[in-house]
């Protein structure tokens, strides 16, 4: 049973690797160089995809949190902390890659724009999530409190975004009715390819991290029996 799962996971890893290499290839050799921003615009394909994967992680975590509070099964808890961890890494990648682009496009690494500020607050919020986990020894209580915090977090993030958006924003808006970023068809194709590649990367990492969590739990149980 475990063998079959491992083979599936290996296949997913291979597919993800190919897709990521393909995305890099497409972005570097296939997409046109943007007229005003130049080569630095290519960061965009990875920046948006990384933020997408980050957001996906936090949403998946909230779903798992709901599952935990409903069933009390530790499998949900393992998946939840795995999703938060991966989401945190991707959001950090999104912030760093965005800063690189912003320095060239806006002339500054950072502005207090809604998206940037929300991303920064999200990183702090989910870093606190791990501090909360760390501070509680009883595994059942740790899982319960972490689930509660993951749910409160996902409630608060959109509200934070909205409230900062009520100030003015200079961040480019990608999906806003008629107005797009002026993406050519080749750019759009590369963008969606990159988005798909990052989704696979997320799934693959998620699976690995859940597997790791289960193994760690098994070790903990065996240790307590010795």
């Amino acid at each position: 049973m475990l063998d079959r799962h491992n083979r599936l996971l290996a296949a997913l890893d291979l597919l993800t690797t190919l897709l990521m290499a393909g995305a890099a290839g497409v972005v570097f050799f296939f997409t046109p160089v943007e007229a005003t921003m130049g080569a630095v615009q290519k960061v965009f394909y990875f920046h948006v995809a990384a933020n997408w994967a980050g957001m996906l992680g936090f949403i998946v975590a909230a779903v798992c949190a709901g599952g935990y509070l409903r069933t009390g099964s530790s499998a949900w808890d393992i998946a939840e902390s795995a999703a938060v961890e991966i989401g945190l890494v991707f959001t950090a990648i999104g912030i760093v890659s965005g800063s690189i682009w912003a320095y060239s496009a806006w002339g500054t690494f950072w502005t207090w724009d809604p998206r940037l500020t929300t991303a920064a607050i999200m990183v702090l919020l989910y870093a606190a999530y791990f501090l909360l986990r760390q501070g509680i020894e009883n595994p059942e209580r740790r899982a319960r409190f972490a689930a509660v915090y993951a749910i409160i977090g996902i409630i608060s993030v959109p509200a934070t975004f909205l409230s900062i958006r009520m100030f003015r924003t200079i961040h480019p808006v990608l999906v806003a009715g008629e107005e797009t970023l002026g993406l050519t068809p080749a750019m759009q194709a590369a963008f969606f390819f990159s988005l798909a590649a990052f989704s696979f990367l997320f799934a693959s990492l998620f699976w690995h991290r859940i597997r790791l969590g289960r193994l760690a739990e098994a070790v903990e149980i065996q240790q307590s029996q010795v």
Binding site: I121, L124, L125, A128, Y149, G153, T160, S163
Partner: peptide
């Protein structure tokens, strides 16, 4: 404070 401040930002 670490838990509360990011949540109450709005």
């Amino acid at each position: 404070p670490l838990l509360l401040l990011p949540v109450t930002m709005p």
